[in-house]
Simulated assay, not measured.
Amino acid sequence: MGLVNIIKEIGHTEVFYAPKAGRFCKGLALLWATMASVQIMGFISVDTFLPYIGLCLVSILYCLCDGSVQFKGRYVFLYLVFLFNVLVLPIEPCFNSKLRFVQFLIVTLACSACISSARAIIFRRYVFRYALMYICILSIGSFFAFFLGVNYMQVGTQLGLAEYSSNGGTFGGLVNHSMTLGPISMISALAFYVIYQNNNSKIFIVLFFLSAMSAVMAASRSALLGVAVAILFSLFL
């Protein structure tokens, strides 16, 4: 099975499914997912956070420009609880809690289910599709990066195989932090596991293994536990 055929087959699976949408919706979702993924890529040093926040605002406006917009009450309640904590609790100024809350609000309004409309649902589906593609590429790429001695962890530590046993938590691969590599590798592994369940091609088990090993290399026990629990859940429940 050629690489092009594998990519086409992955794109047609249920995990990566997205309904029909216009070019603007697809383009905005691809740009949003790209900018979000750039935030964790260790090999890109350009600061793109402000453009990313601006793109989130554009995405929110796009989702709101629909005739049947609704706001989910549980999300609004969650935002109010967070706002209350930020305003009332004695949080150290060094954490910039008010600014972080505003950033959290903007990002989650763009990608969560708080804003409910037909346009928002389709848009988020494409965001999920493109972001998952980036996650899978970074996860699998990080597996090979380990053996090539490539480590973009921001601490600047380049690890070899001999050093890894005592410094496992400092391997980030193509990602800027090991604590980010672990969770995204878990998501990638679960995606390929679900694809394998619906398509018995052995290549997807190989991709599952590569993603899971990236979580091992990142020394993320919680990520590995998450993979195990999710697989057991799918098998027995």
Rank of each mutant, 00 (worst) to 15 (best):
G67S: 06
Y17E: 08
A36S: 15
G27W: 06
K20N: 15
F123T: 00
G27C: 07
V127N: 01
L78T: 13
V81K: 13
L83E: 06
R124M: 01
Q103M: 11
V15N: 04
V81Y: 10
L105H: 02
L50D: 12
A110T: 04
L31V: 09
L28F: 01
K72V: 04
K98Y: 13
G67A: 04
A21D: 04
R129K: 12
P93W: 09
G2D: 14
P90I: 02
P51D: 02
I40P: 02
V76N: 14
S59K: 03
G22L: 02
S97M: 07
I122P: 02
L80S: 15
Y126S: 00
E9V: 03
S112Y: 05
E14G: 03
C111T: 12
C25H: 11
F71I: 08
E92L: 06
M1L: 13
L3H: 14
I115K: 00
S117G: 04
F16Y: 08
L87K: 11
E9R: 15
V127E: 00
K72N: 12
C65P: 03
I115F: 05
V107R: 04
S117Y: 06
R23G: 06
Y126D: 01
V88N: 11
I6C: 06
I122M: 02
F101W: 07
V88E: 09
V58T: 13
S112V: 03
V15G: 02
I60C: 04
F82Y: 09
R23W: 12
N5T: 10
Q70S: 11
R125M: 03
N96T: 08
R100I: 11
C111I: 08
C94L: 14
R74D: 06
I10S: 00
F84S: 06
S116W: 08
V4Q: 15
L50K: 13
L61T: 13
L31E: 01
T108Q: 10
R124C: 00
L57H: 04
I7Q: 10
I115R: 01
L28D: 01
R74I: 05
F82V: 05
L99A: 08
F95V: 11
Q103G: 05
A118Y: 14
I40D: 02
C63T: 09
K26E: 09
A29P: 01
A29W: 00
V107Y: 11
G27Y: 08
I44Q: 03
A113P: 05
Y52V: 00
F123S: 00
D66K: 05
L99I: 13
G11N: 13
C65Q: 12
V81P: 10
C56K: 02
G42Y: 01
C94N: 14
I121V: 14
H12Q: 15
L80W: 15
G73H: 15
Y52P: 00
I6T: 14
A29S: 09
F43T: 09
M1R: 13
G67T: 10
Y75K: 03
T13H: 03
V88K: 12
T48Y: 14
R74T: 15
A113V: 07
G27F: 08
I122T: 10
F82A: 06
P51E: 06
V76S: 10
L80D: 13
